[in-house]
Amino acid sequence: MWHKPRVMTAVSDLLFLAGAAALLVAAVVWGTPRLRLFPLHEIQVTHALQEVRQSDVEQSLSDVLRGNFFTVDIEALRRAVEQLPWVRRAEVWRKWPSRIEVRIEEHRAAAHWGDGPEQLVNTYGELFSAALSQDQQLPRLSGPVGSSSEVLRRYEEFAQILKPTGRLPAQMALSPRLAWLLKLEDGMLVELGREQAKAPIRMRLQRFVDYYPTLSNTRQGRPMAVDMRYPNGFALRFPASAAQEVKGKK
């Protein structure tokens, strides 16, 4: 055969035509979704969700779900899902032969933030905007821009110290001057002030816990506010003079 040029030419032509046909098929499969090859039939969330609904996921994807199994823009789908209020992070991938699977990490609300009804802090200390689907007794935290993670961390620390009192902070604020102010579940204000080298906030809050059982036995009755900013003591304020609100300002 190697000595027959006509046969070699015919074989070469056949191989060329076969290659061209293969390239044409590939171009049709990969570049022409309008032919509806390998269509997508299903969007599946891989696990149960608490706040995000399946219908919300499908609706968020409707505007970007274009193309077929091979050509759909997975990154665009992921960004669309992450725009939903309760979605912290999303992963999206193809599942042969016709399914898109979505894995969602939801925000877990740890506290309200600021004065707005829908500004929340998640368990990582990150801010997000969403409406609670059910009534939850969450504390209300506030502080300067960028302080949500630190304020949440301190809330958890202070709540642990306060356990012996049977009271948790219902509100907690960090002022622009970095002074801390608590409002307990029973309405009592606790002014902790700023961090001090000689009298750390933890030490001053522990002093409050130690004296808390005696605070209701004063001559004037139960105090409305306790000022713990002193290195070695504290001051009590009673209803007539305890008008300060938890606003994070000094």
Score class of each variant (00 low, 15 high):
residue 76 A to C: 11
residue 177 R to W: 01
residue 99 R to P: 00
residue 180 W to L: 13
residue 3 H to M: 09
residue 80 A to R: 02
residue 13 D to E: 00
residue 131 A to H: 03
residue 104 I to T: 11
residue 2 W to N: 07
residue 111 A to W: 08
residue 129 S to K: 08
residue 229 R to H: 05
residue 72 V to F: 01
residue 189 L to W: 10
residue 7 V to Y: 07
residue 110 A to I: 00
residue 125 G to V: 08
residue 142 S to M: 14
residue 122 N to E: 11
residue 193 G to D: 01
residue 242 A to P: 15
residue 14 L to E: 15
residue 113 W to L: 05
residue 151 V to D: 00
residue 55 S to K: 09
residue 178 L to G: 08
residue 6 R to K: 15
residue 191 E to C: 03
residue 13 D to I: 06
residue 35 L to W: 13
residue 243 A to Q: 14
residue 198 K to I: 15
residue 14 L to Q: 12
residue 56 D to C: 01
residue 57 V to F: 05
residue 25 V to A: 13
residue 101 E to V: 13
residue 20 A to D: 02
residue 250 K to G: 13
residue 186 D to V: 00
residue 41 H to I: 06
residue 48 A to I: 04
residue 113 W to N: 12
residue 114 G to A: 10
residue 249 K to R: 11
residue 124 Y to W: 12
residue 233 G to K: 08
residue 130 A to E: 05
residue 11 V to F: 15
residue 212 Y to F: 13
residue 14 L to M: 13
residue 140 R to P: 04
residue 167 R to Y: 04
residue 29 V to Q: 09
residue 203 M to C: 03
residue 70 F to W: 04
residue 208 F to R: 03
residue 156 E to V: 03
residue 30 W to E: 06
residue 75 E to G: 09
residue 53 R to Y: 03
residue 52 V to F: 10
residue 64 V to P: 04
residue 60 S to A: 09
residue 183 K to I: 00
residue 198 K to R: 15
residue 228 M to C: 02
residue 25 V to M: 03
residue 80 A to N: 02
residue 89 R to T: 04
residue 123 T to E: 09
residue 15 L to K: 10
residue 110 A to S: 11
residue 96 W to A: 05
residue 214 T to L: 09
residue 106 E to P: 07
residue 208 F to P: 14
residue 90 A to M: 08
residue 59 Q to W: 12
residue 22 A to L: 09
residue 221 G to V: 14
residue 164 P to C: 08
residue 144 P to A: 13
residue 40 L to C: 06
residue 41 H to Y: 15
residue 127 L to K: 02
residue 77 L to A: 02
residue 85 P to I: 02
residue 75 E to W: 11
residue 65 L to S: 03
residue 182 L to K: 02
residue 37 L to T: 00
residue 116 G to M: 09
residue 140 R to W: 08
residue 85 P to A: 07
residue 137 Q to L: 15
residue 4 K to P: 01
residue 92 V to I: 04
residue 134 Q to D: 12
residue 40 L to V: 01
residue 90 A to R: 12
residue 56 D to G: 00
residue 65 L to G: 01
residue 50 Q to L: 07
residue 209 V to G: 07
residue 48 A to E: 05
residue 1 M to C: 02
residue 54 Q to D: 07
residue 31 G to E: 08
residue 97 P to A: 12
residue 125 G to I: 12
residue 223 P to L: 05
residue 187 G to L: 09
residue 34 R to S: 15
residue 102 V to K: 12
residue 119 Q to P: 11
residue 149 S to T: 14
residue 34 R to N: 13
residue 187 G to E: 02
residue 207 R to K: 10
residue 18 A to T: 15
residue 191 E to V: 07
residue 143 G to R: 01
residue 21 A to Q: 10
residue 208 F to Q: 05
residue 164 P to Q: 11
residue 107 H to M: 04
residue 20 A to K: 03
residue 249 K to F: 08
residue 207 R to V: 03
residue 145 V to R: 02
